[in-house]
């Protein structure tokens, strides 16, 4: 496997707002990331410990109770000048305590690929693996321009236990109480919906953006 180091640049914007995808308005923190070109793939390595901090007692209690914790990581490659998305990849990570075998299970599913499962005896080790993107494929190298004039950044929006309204509707067997009760109540529910300002997309959302940016060296 051929490995190529990247030349990194600086002087990018300090923070931005994600456009589209799972982002939808999150404020990005700048974070140094490691980029590599492996064959035709551009991979990124970065850790997002803020998404599942071990000091979060509630989250740790949830894991210890045997409930699965899902992390959804959406990595988007954007042009630094225009912030135009170039490529997007999604990774789903599930971390769960298996009380039968008394070990932590971390299941990683990348977009278009099968699931990879790893087992850990220690919770912190399992969490460290779950929150770390180790050489995650984010784009095809052939899809990116080369040279220092074409700089790219990667935004990663991480969601802990994302909320899926459709699964809630299916689980609630009809969509909750707001839609029951006849036409008047349904109309009132729609009227209320007009004034709902922010809908949470996950139990916790954390977004970072690579800084400095990267570019592919010219061959």
């Amino acid at each position: 496997m051929r490995r190529r180091a990247f030349v990194t640049g600086a002087g990018l914007t300090l923070a931005g707002v994600a456009a589209g995808g799972a982002g939808g308005g999150e404020l990005f923190l700048l974070r140094r990331m490691k980029f590599e070109e492996l064959g035709d793939a551009v991979v990124v390595s970065v850790a997002l410990p803020e998404l599942l901090p071990t000091r979060d007692a509630s989250a740790m209690q949830s894991i210890e109770s045997g409930f699965a914790t899902t992390l959804r990581l959406e990595a988007t490659v954007v042009r630094t000048k225009s912030l135009t998305p170039v490529a997007r990849r999604v990774r789903i990570v599930k971390i769960q305590w298996n009380p039968w075998r008394e070990r932590y299970v971390v299941q990683t599913t990348d977009q278009g690929r099968g699931a990879a499962i790893r087992y850990y005896g220690k919770r912190d080790a399992a969490i460290a693996h779950a929150i770390t993107l180790e050489r995650m494929r984010v784009a095809r190298a052939s899809a990116l321009e080369r040279g220092p004039s074409a700089t790219y950044a990667v935004t990663i929006v991480g969601q802990r236990n994302p909320i899926d309204p459709e699964s809630r509707v299916a689980a609630d067997d009809g969509g909750g109480g707001q839609t029951r009760g006849g036409g008047d109540l349904s109309a009132f529910s729609r009227w209320i919906g007009v004034f709902v300002q922010s809908a949470p997309r996950a139990e916790k959302t954390f977004a970072v953006r690579s800084s400095p940016a990267f570019y592919l060296v010219t061959r």
Binding site: S62, S65, G66, F67, A68, N161, I163, P165, R168, V169, A171, D172, G175, G176, Q178, T179, S189, R190, I192, G193, F195, V196, Q197, S198, A199, P200, E203
Partner: peptide, 28 residues
């Protein structure tokens, strides 16, 4: 696991196609 999900989302309410917190719904 479903119990865990319900516990996690106990404070969420479905409003139409959206899922919001009860505080947000109350303000709305």
């Amino acid at each position: 696991q479903e119990l865990g999900r319900l516990q996690r989302e106990a404070d969420l309410v479905s409003v139409g196609d959206d899922v919001v917190t009860r505080e947000s719904l109350e303000a709305a």
